[in-house]
């Protein structure tokens, strides 16, 4: 398949666009924070690590084969502040499965930005890339994150208990998912 959306993608308050090398400082601003790293697989990052992360994200803007990733920087329209990132990973071509992800700077939490940006990415996934099911996961303690999934209308499909050790601690993980017909029903409601 070949799927590359037209960028930027705009919502009411946000702009989703491919990463550029100039995003390092904005990414460092949130990836250096312990409260952000707490629920990610990574530890708080140095500026050097962020440079590598951003470089790896540049150019990941479309789907062609399984495992391909779309990483988009999220900016506020009003002041072009880079407030976070969203991602969509093509997990299975045959069964049209993708995984949604997001990381936002806590300075901009609580304003509905993560929900707004993720909804735009679900639209790209279901309508642009013709995905059948999109899932997302988070640490069960990350209440703000799974609240976003619930606001998006995703269903809780899994709650795993102590199924893996993450950073030396027993993990509890939630998986939420949405099917293409559920997306359409919500959109047309």
């Amino acid at each position: 398949m070949a799927f590359v959306p037209d960028y930027p993608v705009e919502t009411a308050r946000l702009r989703l666009r491919p990463f550029t090398r100039g995003d390092v400082e904005a990414v460092f601003a949130y990836r250096q924070r312990a409260d952000v790293a707490r629920y990610l697989f990574d530890e708080p990052m140095s500026r050097e690590s962020c440079t590598e992360v951003v470089q790896a994200r540049v150019g990941q803007t479309g789907f062609e084969q399984e495992g391909d990733k779309i990483f988009l920087a999220v900016e506020r329209l009003e002041d072009s502040a880079m407030i976070g990132e969203v991602s969509l990973i093509l997990r299975s071509l045959e069964s049209r499965q993708a995984e949604l992800g997001y990381i936002f700077n806590p300075d901009f939490h609580g304003l509905g930005y993560a929900t707004e940006a993720s909804r735009a990415l679900l639209a790209l996934g279901f309508e642009g890339a013709a995905m059948h099911r999109i899932h997302a996961r988070c640490d069960a303690r990350n209440v703000a994150s799974w609240k976003v999934m619930e606001r998006l209308g995703m269903r809780r499909e899994a709650h795993f208990h102590e199924h893996v050790l993450v950073k030396g601690v027993w993990d509890e993980e939630l998986i939420y998912a949405m099917l293409e017909d559920e997306w359409r029903t919500r959109r047309d409601a």
Partner: peptide, 26 residues
């Protein structure tokens, strides 16, 4: 065992959408 997951249409199994349950016990 606890029902920890109920996946819907997460994969194709022998040409049909699969629905899978995960159970677990500690």
């Amino acid at each position: 065992m606890r029902l920890e997951a109920h996946y819907r249409e997460h994969a194709l199994f022998q040409g049909e959408w699969d629905e899978e349950l995960h159970f677990a016990i500690l």
